[in-house]
């Protein structure tokens, strides 16, 4: 189940991440983006450790450069011309906005990385089940069959090798034919034996009226608090975003925050740090109780 933020109710964590995505995607203000990027980065490091650093350098950074470069090459708005090639202006504004846009994407991807760590398959099935129980059941069954099918395809490969009819190298046509045969064996096996699954379902009353859907999640006051705060944060984010101008066309204009926006920003930062605060507090509680015992 997990502890800390991961142990919270799926609905709360989901709404939290929707907030972070929406906020990061919609804002273009460097300060707001900076907050989002910073919070996402440290939480991801907290969750996944060193791997985040390599993810950042091997995937996110090249992507950012690519986005910024693409934007610089294809967008020619703005008033500050840096240089000109064959009558096309390359502007400072498009360079800056390209950079802003790449930070935006990076922040979103970092949040997505945290999302994948926190909102696991079971939680997605649960959330899906709230909307459509039948599809959630289908997803759960699919997740049951996938490892089964993988094991079977291994069995089939070994069986073919054991009688020497596996074509695993050589001409493409031969390999393709061999692969098609394997797939054929696999499909027959899966579908024909699937009648047992269907019997097992009917034997346990599938198809009776009034099916409920079970979940092992309990919605606590804490979960409610996170949910409500995330909703408030979304609204606050929209508000700050519209009150603080950050425009890059035709020229770069960025508002400095006034006192009220500053307060809202602090609030937003606090919400985005909420997961890591929750986790750290929980860890401290554990270490204290360990010391006591």
């Amino acid at each position: 189940m997990g502890t800390g933020f991961k142990g919270m109710h799926p609905a709360s964590t989901f709404v939290f991440f929707v907030f972070t995505f929406v906020f990061s995607m919609l804002t273009s203000h460097p300060l707001l983006l900076g907050i989002s990027f910073f919070c996402a980065f440290i939480y991801d490091v907290k969750l996944r450790g060193k791997r985040v650093v390599s993810y950042f350098f091997t995937a996110l950074l090249p992507l950012s450069v690519l986005i910024a470069l693409f934007n610089f090459l294809f967008s020619h708005y703005g008033v500050t011309v840096l240089f000109e090639i064959r009558g096309i202006d390359f502007t400072l504004e498009s360079l800056i906005y390209g950079l802003i846009f790449s930070v935006k994407t990076t922040a979103t991807l970092l949040w997505l990385d945290c999302f994948n760590e926190i909102v696991t398959g079971d939680k997605i099935i649960y959330l899906f089940g709230r909307v459509s129980p039948k599809l959630a059941l289908v997803v759960s069954m699919v997740l049951r069959f996938i490892p089964l099918i993988r094991a079977q395809s291994e069995d089939i490969a070994n069986a073919e090798r054991g009688i020497g009819i596996a074509t695993e190298s050589g001409k493409l046509r031969g390999r393709l034919r061999s692969t098609a045969r394997r797939l054929s064996v696999l499909v027959s096996w899966t579908l024909e034996r699937g009648i047992d699954t269907s019997d097992s379902m009917s034997a346990r009353g599938y198809g009776l009226r009034g099916r409920t859907s079970y979940n092992s999640y309990v919605f606590s006051v804490r979960d409610a608090a996170v949910l409500i705060l995330s909703v408030f944060a979304t609204i606050a984010g929209m508000f700050v975003n519209s009150s603080l101008t950050a425009s890059y066309n035709p020229k770069t204009e960025i508002d400095l925050p006034d006192a009220f926006s500053l307060v809202l920003m602090l609030f937003l930062a606090f919400i985005m740090l909420l997961p890591i605060i929750t986790d750290l507090r929980e860890e401290r509680k554990w270490s204290i109780s360990k010391l006591k015992s």
């Binding site: 759960s140 699919v142 097992s200 346990r204 009353g205 599938y206 198809g207 099916r211 409920t212 079970y214």
Partner: peptide
């Protein structure tokens, strides 16, 4: 092939859900 869902917990719950029991 007779296990229907992906996790032990949901497998135990499957029949009970069909009967319409509360969580």
């Amino acid at each position: 092939y007779q296990a229907v869902t992906h996790s032990v917990r949901s497998e135990l719950a499957f029949g009970l859900e069909n009967l319409g029991l509360s969580s």
